[in-house]
Amino acid sequence: MTGEVVLRVSGLSARIGHQQVVEDVSFDVPAGEVTAILGRNGAGKTSTIKGILGLIGRSGIVELEGERIDTLATDRIVRRGVGYVPEDREVFASLTVAENLRLAERDASPRRELVAELFPELITRGAQRAGTLSGGQQQMLSLSRALLNDNRILLIDEPTKGLSPKLVAEVVAALEVVARVVPILLVEQNLNAARRLAARLVVIEDGRSVLSGPASEFFEDEERLIRMLGVHGSGVGGVGTA
């Protein structure tokens, strides 16, 4: 499988309102591994993900396993097998945990056992309103919504944002399990997490993809990477920890 391209993004640009937030982003996501998008705050990482999904206005070419998906509506893109775990979780706060999961089920036989195995807590808290969950639990719920279905790729936006180091480790461990089954395009500010998960990196600067390649090459010259990502004051948390 490795070497085959699942998702190919060519010349993607995206806008919020009249403002161009992604200028020219191109990269491939190969099968069987995790590709991480890195970049400073406001560089256009989240907008790239949203542009791929059509959640914001976009142009350029996006191919899923060789088929164009850049003209489709968001829901149809997702039904083609693109799972999405948004920044800030976006669980439905007024719905129960079970309802959040039920809403996300779109396959005939959703993988409830996988979710129960990875996050047993969500099953015991099924009747609880999602808005009352802790940040970490909400992240697990958000992740579970994407895992329930048989996806060809997962787009996961900052899964460790705002979590304690212990929870970061839990989420990363879960993602490692997930990555064995499905390729992931990951936005990650936490360099340690990115190092553990990502096989490839894409660096975005001012709405353009400036570099991409095997993660090992980047992490050999960590200083350069840190300089590029503007660690100082940009919230790349957890670099020195763990």
Binding site: L53, L55, A73, T74, D75, R76, V78, R79, Y84, P86, E90, F92, A93, S94, L95, E99, R102, L103, A104, R106, R145, N149
Partner: peptide
């Protein structure tokens, strides 16, 4: 009902409903 669920979720966050693959 499932439609009821979609409506309740959509009132709260419509774009996330479409991002779950539901034709809202």
């Amino acid at each position: 009902t499932r439609f009821g669920l979609v409506i309740r979720a959509g009132v709260e966050n419509r774009s996330m409903v479409t991002a779950l693959g539901i034709d809202v």
